[in-house]
Every structure is written in C-alpha cells, then in structure tokens.
Write a protein that binds this DNA or RNA. Sequence first.
DNA 1: AATATTACCCAAAACGTTTTGGAAACGCAA
DNA 2: TTGCGTTTCCAAAACGTTTTGGGTAATATT
Lengths: 334, 334
Amino acid sequence: MPVTIRDVARAAGVSITTVSHAFNGYEDVGDETKKRVLQVAKDLNYRPSRVARSLVLQQTQSVGLLISDFNANPGSNHFLFDVLAGIHNRLAELGYDVTLLSTTTARQQLISYIDFCTERRLEGVIVMGMRMDDPYMQEVADASLVSVGIDLPILSRHCGYVMTDNVGGAKQGVKHLLSKNHRRIGFVNGHLHAVVSIDRLRGYEDALQDEGIAVDPELIVHSDFLVEGGEKATAALLERRPDVTAIFYASDLMALGGMRHLQKAGRRIPEDVAVVGYDNVDVGQWVVPALTTVGQKRYEMGTSAAEMLVGMLQRKEEPRACVLQAEMVIRQSS
Amino acid sequence: MPVTIRDVARAAGVSITTVSHAFNGYEDVGDETKKRVLQVAKDLNYRPSRVARSLVLQQTQSVGLLISDFNANPGSNHFLFDVLAGIHNRLAELGYDVTLLSTTTARQQLISYIDFCTERRLEGVIVMGMRMDDPYMQEVADASLVSVGIDLPILSRHCGYVMTDNVGGAKQGVKHLLSKNHRRIGFVNGHLHAVVSIDRLRGYEDALQDEGIAVDPELIVHSDFLVEGGEKATAALLERRPDVTAIFYASDLMALGGMRHLQKAGRRIPEDVAVVGYDNVDVGQWVVPALTTVGQKRYEMGTSAAEMLVGMLQRKEEPRACVLQAEMVIRQSS
DNA sequence: AATATTACCCAAAACGTTTTGGAAACGCAA
DNA sequence: TTGCGTTTCCAAAACGTTTTGGGTAATATT
C-alpha cells in the first residue's frame, strides 16, 4: 500500500540505486536527476521504510524504556513521568526511538525482558522504577544488552546508571535543620533493602557528625516511604523521644503523614517541630505549612541517562556512575 | 551478530522453511524434527527478528503514543502517566508495541507526526495531552492514519476518541453541593477555548436548572485551570458576590488556589464556603480540609483507548466516541 | 501392480531498503 | 588510435523472515 523506493524510481525513470543515493547524500548523482527524483518523491509522498532500512543496516536506532511494573509505584508517578519526558526528549534529539516496556508485559507473555529486546533488535534499554529486590534485577545485571538504570546502582560491563546523591541530599536536609539550631533531630527512614535508605541514613549521620553531635539510635525509626507508614513512625518516634525539635523524613509522603500526626498531636509546625521531607512531590507545596524538602532533578536524570546510553552505543564509552546533586527546596515547614 | 533462522536450520539439519513452520505452528513438520528444531533454537538462544518479520508481513504490530509537548502540561503529569500506563498495559496484552512520540520531537526534526508514523510503519496512534488549538490537531483530524484521541472530541473517518462525561461530571459535582442545601453556588471555570470548559459549564447549568434555580451570570468566572488563576478568580468572585456558600471549580488546581484565598480571607471550609474541585489530583487528599472532587478514571481511559484502537485495526470497527462516567470523590471540603 | 493419499520436507520468491562493484559515455592526453 | 580519468548511472546481492507451490517417500486403496 505505501509507496516504495521502486515506485519513485519508476516514476522518475531511474534505478532504485539512484533514488537511494539521491536521498542519502551520495555525490554520484547529477544535479538534474537529483532534483527530479526529490520532486517525484515529494509528489508521491514517499517515506523510506525504517523497517527495511533497519533490516539491511542491522540497527534499529531504537531503545527500550523498561518501567518495571507500572502500577507498582503509587505516588512516584510524577517522578517517573518527568524522567520519562527527559529520556524521550533527549533520545529523540539524538535520533533514537523509544519503545515502552514493562515487566508486567514480559510476565504476561512469559518472556524475559532480554528476549523482548533482542526480538525487536533494540540497541539498548533504560530501566526505571525497579527495586533492587525485583527478580528482573538479576537479568539487567548480567545482560549483555547495553543499559542504564535510573536509581539502580549497578555497574557492570554493559550497564551504567544515573542517580542523585542521596547521602549528599540527606546531608543538606539535615544541615538545613542544624542551621536552624535544631539539635535533637529525628529521622524517619524507608525500608533498608532500598538502596536510597542506606545512603540517606549515611547522609543523616554524616551531617550530625560534622557538627560534633552523637548519633542517637533512639531518634531513628524505619518505615515504608508511604503516608500511613510515616504517620505511625512519627507516633512511635514521639512516644520514645517527645523532646525532638525536628524530624527529617526519607520521603515526602512519609513527611505528609508525619505532619498529619503532629498536627493531631497538637504540635505546631515548624514552631514546635520542624519537618523536612525528601522527593519534592507536587503535593508538598500545597499542604500547610508548605513542605521543605530535598528534591531530585528529575528531567535532568532522564536526559543524562539518555546521553549516557547513546554514548555507550555510538562512542563505545565505558558504563559509568552518574550522580547528580540534590537540590534543597526550602518552604514553610522548617 | 545475533543468531538467525538460518543458523538454527543449519544446526538442526533442516531447511529454514521447516524452522519457520516449527515455530509458527504449522502441521506439516514431524514430531521428532519439531522437537529437535525447538531444542536447537533454545540452545542457540534464537529469537526471530521482528524487523524482518514486519517487513515480510507488512505490519509492525506497533502503534505510536503522541504526547503533544511533554513539558507543556505542568500539573497534569499524574493524569498523563496513569493514562499512559493503561494504554501500554492493554496494548501489550493485545500484542502491540508502543513507540513514544511528542510534537516537540517532530518539530525538532521538522517532520510531521504523520511522516514519523509512516516512516516507522506504525499502524495507528493514540494522541493525548493535546489542546484543540494545537496546530497539530488539523493533522490528526484529516490523517488517514487510524487514531484515537484522549480528551479530544474529534470524530472522523479514521479517528475515534475517549473522554469522560464532563457535563455529567460537573452536574454530579454541583448536585452534591445542592444536596447539602447550597443555593448560591459559584463556578470558577477554565478558559473557554478548552472543550472541557464548555461541557462543565453545561453541567453546572443543567444541575441548577434541574433544581429550578436560575443561573446567575455573576456567579460564574473564568480562569486558566492553574493555582494562581484560581486564587485570583476566587477573590474576584467573593468581591462580586460575598454571599456565595459554595464554589465549584473546573480544576483541582484552581480549587487549591481558591482554598488558599478563602482561608486567607478568614472563611472556614466547608462551614462558610464549601469547595468542590475537578480532576482528583493526588494533592487533593493531603490539603486540609481534604478536597472533594470529581475524578476521571484515568487508567481506564487508557485501556479503553487501546481497545478502541485495536478494534479499528483488527476488526475494522468504526471509530466511535467513548465517554466514560466521572466519579465523585467526597472528602472534607464540602 | 498401479494409483491415490498422507506425512514430511524444501527451494525460491517476496518484503523495501543499502551498498558494492562495475559500466557507459565523455573528454583529454599520449 | 589507444589509454585513462571523470561523471553519472545501474544490476545484483544482502539483510532475516514468511509463504507458496511443489517434491519425495511411505502407506493405503483399488
């Protein structure tokens, strides 16, 4: 149905070789014929088939975007979408197509994500929204497929990653609190099998130690990154140490839950207890008081991942770890 | 580099025809050979090339997902992401790949989105996040490419759409307010060149008329769907009609802005002024008081769009308008 | 014994490109 | 005349599949 290079060749009275050459900037086609071919092609609305092109060139110029399980990440959609936008836009600029792929897809069809990619001859893949304990992690780790992970610190022969500096970010958040003269600062962390939790704990400890303050284990409590969890964790923390003057949360959602509990318990924010979250979710600017938080450069994470991937693809660059700085967003809760 | 059907054929000592037949469920291959071929294929890690397959079959089994300009929709990311998840998941189940595409991509490379799709031999396209006055709209309208729009009420020979019932939704929102005995209900609408604004106005009017209440033009004010706009519009409305007892907003963001102003102005919510929004953004459940709103079934919009598209593709179904019911989410602000 | 049927298998063409290795035509120098 | 460079063009192979239209041998039917 669609018009082929052969149609153009026939209509212009030349060979398909000539048409191909005219399109691809070869020098061995006369000015006169070149103009004619191009005109005919335009008239016929000719568009070269990428699939035929991919077949002969043995490269598809397209990469996969693996988003783990789409619905498994409630509350982090804003994050994923911004990163996705960055990935797509940069990749488009660089001439690559991006094909969506989720682990549910693969599971539904009982196919590994590697198989999915090789069938489609995807040249690389960017992975995001995946937890370290996801069974697919092993696959991306050992794969010979070129890949870069978002917030997945695995570095291997063909696999780089980009993430934000979580220890630095947490450190900034706590330092901010310290600068407001808080000394008994609670920390509500996420579960410890998440990489970010470990790093943020490090940042928390580092900030205190820089100031010569001993880390008090009673001030640290673990939760699950979500609102309810933050609420309960805050209750537990207040029970144990009613004298905290500030709480640093490893996620905004937990901070939101925490603020809810604090307000119920009659503590004013920030006068009685200051609150700092982590993630810079949209919600943060609409709660009262607006939430101080440390945010990630989401869009930039996407563009960086895109650039790293094509670097590995085109210039055979080594996979590396790209860590971006976090950015403090100071609002009214602290 | 990757292993081809020829490699398998050679290793199994059969022709490529036989390998192809063995893989595709033909009956004319012996049990013995079939088993051998499959085993060899597995050993060699053979994966049939989709691009070769697409070329000969003349169909790619993949569709485009056009997201207008990615960054042009601040605040509606959550919406787009959920829809995207629905689209992708359903499409994957139905055996289609989805390729990302934004109008910025096309603009960058000075290529129309139609050309983008035909070059890649995409079989159809789902369009979302686009405004009716976007210059690309004309293209999707006259395109011969099979397509379905999200929240884009254009119906043509090859083009269907899915959207939520905005007049019904607005009607529900206002009826809810009426049921709480409010009689002077303000309406902060979006700009009128957005289709949804016109429908929501209709719903507002219908609800009042059903109750025998005259529509008072002084109670209606236009804004821009965003927070600041809602804030100003609310100020203007209160100025003009200080006696309103409830306000219905055409977007949650405007409602958020409105609540901010109301609280500044010393009006209690919902005691003095009840508030109902539209969209069910995540934020809504975290502000105090939590925002009553009318929401769209975002994920379901995605799956519906996916189903409509493959219906048109595979069963030659006629393009149709699929309108989903809105759902009231009642919280504390009303 | 001849013929029809069945069960397996395969060669070759096709899909729409790119690229290689010339060929034809021409001008120019020997 | 011959030989040689240029310029402009093209035929054919290749990419990895699917599908058509057989073919061969063994078995069943007459």
